[in-house]
Design a protein around this nucleic acid. Structure first.
Length: 293
DNA sequence: AATTCGCCCTGTCGGC
DNA sequence: TGCCGACAGGGCGAAT
């Protein structure tokens, strides 16, 4: 599931491929992935030039002329750009079930819901098997007031620890530490994987009520979140199932995760068996010895 | 006001 | 071997 590091990886790999290119045609193949009210605006992207790519939390913001194309990858969304000189590889990996998973720059398939043809023959595609992703087109100057963006708290990357601690202490209550980390109005960009990893690094059990966390442990958590996100970006994202960057490459961060997806396996630090549970309606893994309640 | 919960969706996996 | 239910989960809107 694309979280801040995955979205940032897409942003960085997409930028050199699309910046400065004009959109020659915008095609919408699955209308419901577009936020209501953006239908006409999406088709109207043709003729304008992609001038900037920014990121806010898990949202990608493409500045197209005087408009914003906002992209949320949901759980399985992929934004890929194939240049004209690149052949379609149509490489598949055959899964145990017989299903063939696409790998690398790929031709349009049943999960490709929107395409942007670019000047020079490049093709930008939005693919999303589970269709939890969203596209939104609006005037660039309305970005800060559109609900999805306006709701977001400060970006998790580069957030000063002092600001994190201040916000955390101001909102302490019954909610769990994990629920707070997943709350995009608190910090934007942290999802299930990095929340679990940050809690492990901070030595905090994810289900701990936020009211039980003091300033010292909050500061430890701030550092752990920052570190988890930075490492995720360094490793070009976590590819647990579907994540690929704009060139179709998988990330490598799944190789260095301490807890996520490792329930029942030994803790890398103390060898205790990692416990899987449900916290904040999400599958959660923690070490019963390293992470105190 | 803060928090929880149901819903959206489809590929995957385990059980029988 | 094959069918079927359970599961995964980000964000929104309704309910508590």
């Amino acid at each position: 599931m694309p979280e801040l590091p995955e979205v940032e990886t897409v942003r960085r790999t997409l930028a050199p491929r699309v910046l400065g290119r004009a959109i020659t045609r915008a095609t919408l193949r699955l209308p419901r992935i577009l936020e209501v009210g953006s239908r006409r605006a999406f088709a109207g992207l043709a003729g304008a030039t992609i001038e900037a790519i920014e990121r806010r939390g898990k949202y990608l913001l493409l500045r197209v002329g005087d408009r914003a194309l906002v992209v949320h990858l949901g759980m399985t969304g992929q934004l890929q750009c194939r240049l004209a000189e690149e052949a379609v590889t149509d490489t598949f990996v055959r899964m145990q079930s017989g299903y063939q998973r696409a790998v690398g720059p790929h031709s349009i398939d049943r999960h490709t819901h929107a395409t942007l043809e670019l000047a020079g023959g490049a093709l930008l595609t939005f693919r999303d098997p589970r269709t939890f992703g969203k596209l939104l087109v609006l005037p660039w100057e309305e970005l800060e007031t559109t609900p999805r963006i306006a709701r977001l708290g400060p970006d998790g990357l580069g957030l000063p620890a002092g600001v994190f601690v201040e916000r955390f202490m101001a909102r302490r209550g019954a909610a769990s530490v994990k629920a707070r980390l997943l709350d995009q109005s608190f910090i934007a960009g942290v999802g299930n994987i990095y929340a679990d990893e940050a809690c492990f690094a901070a030595g905090i059990r994810p289900a701990t009520p936020t009211r039980r966390i003091g300033a010292t442990r909050a500061a430890r958590l701030a550092a752990a979140v920052e570190e988890a996100l930075r490492r995720g970006i360094e490793n070009c994202g976590t590819s647990f199932s579907d994540f690929v960057d704009a060139e179709g490459r998988a990330g490598g961060n799944q190789e260095v995760l301490h807890v996520y997806g490792r329930g029942g396996e030994p803790c890398v630090r103390c060898d205790a068996t990692l416990v899987k549970s449900v916290v904040a309606q999400r599958g959660t893994v923690h070490c019963p010895r390293c992470q105190r309640p």
